[in-house]
Amino acid sequence: MDIFLQLIASGLLVGGIYALIALGFVLIYKATNIINFATGEFMMIGAYIFYSLTVYLKLSPYAGFPLVIVCAALLGTLVERLILRHMLGQPNISIIMVTIGLSSILLGIAEIIWGSDFRSLPPLFPRKPIIIGEVVLRSNLFYGFLMAIAVVVIFMLLFKYAKIGVAMRATANDQMAAFSMGINVKTMFTISWAFGTIAASLGGIIIGNIGGVQPTLGHIGLKIFPIVILGGLDSVGGAVLGGFIVGIVENLAGGYLDPYFHGGVKDLAPFVVLILILLIKPYGLFGTKEIERL
């Protein structure tokens, strides 16, 4: 029983961090309808930039975070301006593949610059594990979770109350209407790419702080798909819920099944669940079926 509780608890914590990464995907998808396959690579780049700033340049983490945010915003803006802007009006399949190409580029660049060895980020949080009852939580995971949830909440508040957030929501709802209300839709696209990249980078730092940084860190980004399909593609709340589900599912699968398969089940489980759900509900748990017209 305590193993079960233990697995659920750490699953929840991981799930909260996944929610932040999924947010990086959803922010872009909501405003631009673009499926960004490079979200995981944005994470990985964010973690490496943080690593370079704090280890090579020996800056304190307090200076590192804002600088990573600036760099991520810049990266997102560049990607949108240089690549995605040219793809407006192209078929969906082409746009998906452009982002796949982009992820391949970022992965290669990271390996050229930082190599393929594991790098450890400087310690960000107190090392003492958190003990609640019989459940022991790793401190990196626990504080990472708190930080991820804080960032998600800040983003949600931003959308609800700040002018720019309202404009982004309007764009997401109806581009033509937003345009006629004087919102610069193209600027909104750029801003959502910047925000999406920021969310992903912060997620990358948190993940990197738990398990080290490597070019393949971005593979965690693939988990975004089970998360968003479970939670609904275009809602922030759904991303959080999906994050928790995936976190718990993979932890339980890893804890109970991995010993029988010599590992690997943990990462696979969300995809098996995903397939099962798609077979029963083709538009995900909370997705809406669109009315098609002729």
Binding site: S94, V98, L102, S104, I105, G108, A110, I112
Partner: peptide, 20 residues
Amino acid sequence: FPLQQVIFGLLIVIFLVFEP
């Protein structure tokens, strides 16, 4: 290996943008 990845990615992006 990483250079291959960069070039594959670049080819995908460049062709889709300029010569679909």
